[in-house]
């Protein structure tokens, strides 16, 4: 979204928004929320929304990182392995050396960046397709992690880490406390950073440009390798950060629990309108994509559908959404061809 600063462009921008994927997604999310709000007493409660945000923060954070890679025209599914490695390394070191908040985030982030850069190097320098590279690195990172860690859990995490963040506490009428926890805090920061990166920095616009037309980007002298390092490194960084958020919520480190979730994250980002072909996708759309899947699963439980069935509905939603998108895209192209 390139919302210009001047007022005159506001109306056309609004009109463009009305035609966008994000608009329809927003409508669907609102309809879902209203429907669930009317059908159940528990959906639109502070308690439920708080839990919803907290428990979906991990997927949401990763989705923001993956969005950047998809916009750049690549794909990466190794980030769950990256997260597992980062989590294990950072918290093992924290236990051994008594490290604090800053250090564990720095370590997890650095491990993530290194893994991301490995992907970027293979993809750009060896010109192997990004999906193949990331499937391979997923297996390499994960295999090595389990080999060296022996797949052992870490349950005795540092005290400060177990306590997490609990800022701006607020008690509701029933005396239930709420606060800004680590999950929500990081989720908000990551979405904000990703939005700033993509929309407010030159590099972000270059990422969109490269995703839209890679050849042209090369001809205009864009540093494709550097941009790739940035996007894959950024996803790695995000994966590292997300891994700590997940460990804090789970109150333990389990090396095997994250790998396998990569396609769920991909589904959320794609549902949010990002294209696998590159150049398309927004932070708002990604937020809505994550929200839609989260609300759907939460709502099904609230209206009394066994959680065993929730994945079926998620699959249906994905299938319907991608079909509608493809269908309308095809119709749009046909009508353009006639005009």
């Amino acid at each position: 979204m390139t919302l210009a600063a001047d007022q005159r462009s506001f109306m056309p921008a609004l009109r463009r928004f009305r035609r966008s994927h994000e608009f329809w997604l927003l409508v669907v999310v609102i309809v879902f929320c209203l429907g669930l709000g009317l059908a159940t007493d528990s959906f639109l409660t502070l308690q439920n929304l708080f839990d919803l945000l907290t428990s979906n923060a991990f997927v949401g954070i990763l989705a923001a990182g993956l969005l950047v890679v998809l916009v750049a025209g690549g794909i990466d599914i190794s980030f769950t392995a990256t997260a597992s490695v980062a989590q294990y390394v950072a918290l093992s070191l924290a236990l051994s050396y008594g490290l604090g908040w800053f250090a564990i985030f720095a370590i997890a982030g650095a491990v993530g960046v290194v893994c991301g850069l490995i992907n970027a190097i293979f993809i750009t320098k060896l010109r192997i397709s990004s999906i193949i590279v990331s499937i391979a690195t997923l297996n390499i990172f994960y295999g090595l992690l389990i080999f060296f860690s022996g797949g052992k859990y870490i349950t005795s995490l540092p005290k400060y880490f177990r306590d997490g963040v609990w800022w701006f506490e607020y008690d509701d009428a029933a005396g239930v406390p709420y606060a800004l926890n680590l999950q929500i805090l990081v989720l908000a920061i990551v979405f904000l950073c990703t939005w700033l990166l993509l929309n407010r920095t030159n590099v972000g616009r270059q990422i969109y440009a490269m995703g839209g037309n890679k050849d042209a980007a090369q001809r205009l002298g864009f540093q494709v390798f550097r941009l790739n390092c940035l996007v894959y490194g950024y996803l790695g960084l995000i994966a590292g950060v997300a891994s700590l958020v997940q460990a804090q919520l789970a109150q333990s480190v389990t090396p095997t629990v994250l790998v396998g979730k990569e396609l769920d994250v991909l589904a959320a980002v794609v549902l949010g309108g990002a294209s696998l072909a590159g150049g398309v996708g927004t932070v708002l759309g990604t937020i809505l994509g994550v929200a839609l899947l989260a609300i759907l699963q939460n709502g099904l439980v609230l209206v009394g559908v066994s959680s065993y069935w929730s994945q079926l509905f998620v699959g249906l939603i994905i299938l319907v959404a991608v079909s509608i998108t493809a269908w309308s895209e095809r119709r749009r192209r046909q009508s353009k061809a006639i005009n």
């Binding site: 696998l276 994905i318 299938l319 991608v322």
Partner: peptide, 16 residues
């Protein structure tokens, strides 16, 4: 994307 959808759906059906 299509097969990601059917994958989730089939697995969902199996679990359900």
């Amino acid at each position: 994307l299509a097969t990601l959808g059917t994958m989730t759906m089939c697995k969902g059906l199996s679990i359900g």
